[in-house]
Design a protein around this nucleic acid. Structure first.
Lengths: 339, 339
DNA sequence: TTGTAAGCGTTATCAT
DNA sequence: ATGATAACGCTTACAA
């Protein structure tokens, strides 16, 4: 490990004080732009890079943001992270990313690691079985800001970034109704999570608004895995009266369900019209292509990161803005179209 | 931000010197286990957490590993990262993860960020169009160790962790031949990447070994996207003599190709038997389920991280062990089975 | 506009 | 087995 260039080295060569060099490098207002130029070019020439640890130690800030997500392996999440990364890089922040793998226990462990890493702030999307936010109390106590996105939970002084899942669920269901469907089944995820509870609420509201009866046998609460999709198909096949519409809260599950239904001789959309959620690339793999709800991951990531950084820089107090709603879009494809 | 507990606070309360406290906390041999116990329990009681920045500054090490991957949104990669995370956490290392989105330019930018973050080491899987490793020269010059996994490139003093893609490609092709297929097409990715070049080599070798002619019109080099899968189906449909076997170097592309083929009236596997690669969950969505090659992501991640950490701790010089080969498994499903 | 100097919390060296 | 002390590289009152 050869020696690193420090501000002292630059100062010595330029016959200046380390303080001036530090200030110039940080674009301090009270330094003449002449000296700034000289210092910057010398720093470049010498291959100087700031020592974040010394800086962090001194300023008691880490310029690091912790990110906890349920899983990394969805197209949606990877675009969210790309957005966060972009914003964080530009603002000179580091990202520490970890996945809870949908487990409350692991999320608790992740939170602890983040705390020990002294992140300046937290961006979190909750695991499916997370029961409360107690594991973040250490952060709240220290006033370390946290923003929840997508899988959120109301919490004082904590911004939520989401789409309007109630309306999206409503739109998905209303779309099926508009295609002439009357018996619409809904396959959802853990109802502790807002995304699923809200979509369900929208589904119920749509049924009510269009005067359709609510049939509790047409509601299946699952983990939205591939197997759950297969099970749903079995369940449908076993019903005395087959539903003619199906709204599944996740594309992957919807797609595996469609496959199984087709195997059993059901035609999609003619016998059962299907709508998914998320606009995962897998929605384009199945024949017929899956109708779904798209929402902008990259944008969600950018907004989450930017809001947090603004807050950290004192530009915007996030406790005032408490919920940010992003737009979504119902994408109609063949799996639900009347014909 | 309330005040943090430091080793000075502990030292004062225990009438000891900070040095002793530091040593005890780091499990230094020359401290009596009695005092260690006292110090540890006091530290716990006071809610002490070590300041990594002070420690890093002093020790000139960051205990941080940089990870650069092409994309986060595959099942394979998320298991790799889960493995890395597990090992890193246990060894008290942090992970900084970034995605190149398959772009050489972005990979170069990522490398720069990692360098400025002063990571102790690097775990990298290359973007599809990366031409060389020049952007890592800063690391090599400083003797910062780097391990390449999956998408690798030979490099002095740099361990590669891979599966035997030549053999895997061979096995996939030989399997199709064993099912009676004679005209086998291969859809591959950017041949700059070992994974694709090697699988192609295995494909060629298998054809040669079984006395089948090589037909260059049956080789398609693509980006393995969904669209490339559709295009491949078009291409197949336009051929004067349809291939009866198809080996695609990625499941997602294979699956979208199967869908398109079926739309065009081809039966899978009867007209065209198909084998994919990676054992992505999407391989189970399509009907018939896709034959594919599985390899252990979690294990690859664990081994990569562990090797790097061992090296950093001086336990194992990775420049001696230069390539680590992991096992893979051909998973035969309906998309290729004789019937 | 620039300089001086103290201090952030550790750890390593040398001494006891 | 434990203590005193310097140093890691930076930022920021305070001074000039």
């Amino acid at each position: 490990m050869q020696k690193e260039v420090t501000i002292y080295d630059i100062a010595r060569l330029l016959q200046l004080s380390p303080a001036t060099v530090s200030r110039a490098l940080n674009d301090h207002p009270g330094i003449s732009s002449q000296t700034k130029d000289i210092i910057h070019s010398k720093a470049n020439e010498m291959g100087y890079r700031s020592n974040r640890f010394a800086s962090n130690l001194r300023r008691q800030r880490t310029n690091t943001i912790g990110v906890i997500v349920p899983r990394l392996d969805s197209y949606f999440m990877s675009t969210v992270l790309a957005g966060m990364e972009k914003v964080a890089n530009e603002a000179n922040f580091n990202l520490i990313i970890s996945q809870s793998l949908e487990s409350f226990r692991k999320e608790i462990a992740n939170a602890k690691t983040m705390f020990d890493s002294r992140v300046d702030g937290l961006l979190v999307s909750l695991a499916s079985d997370t029961e409360n936010l107690d594991h973040f109390h250490t952060f709240f106590r220290k006033n370390i800001p946290m923003i929840l996105f997508d899988r959120v939970m109301p919490q004082k002084n904590c911004t939520n970034i989401v789409i309007d899942n109630v309306r999206a669920g409503y739109d998905a269901t209303a779309h099926l109704i508009a295609q002439g469907r009357r018996r619409i089944m809904h396959v959802t995820g853990n109802l502790r999570r807002n995304v699923y509870a809200d979509r369900l609420q929208g589904y119920r509201q749509a049924l009510a608004d269009y005067g359709l009866p609510t049939d509790e046998t047409l509601l299946q609460t699952t983990d939205l895995t591939r197997q759950d999709g297969l099970d749903a198909a079995d369940y449908i096949a076993g019903l005395p009266s087959t539903p003619d519409g199906l709204f599944v809260a996740s594309d992957f599950c919807a797609v595996s369900c469609i496959g199984a239904l087709q195997q059993k001789g059901f035609a999609v959309p003619d016998d059962v019209a299907v709508v998914g959620f998320n606009n995962d690339p897998v929605s384009l793999v199945i024949q017929p292509n899956l109708t779904t709800v798209h929402y902008p991951g990259q944008e969600m990531g950018e907004i989450a990161a930017q809001s947090l950084i603004n807050h950290l820089n004192g530009l915007l107090r996030i406790n005032t803005t408490n919920t940010i709603l992003l737009n979504y879009e119902l994408i109609v494809r063949e799996s639900s179209r009347k014909r």
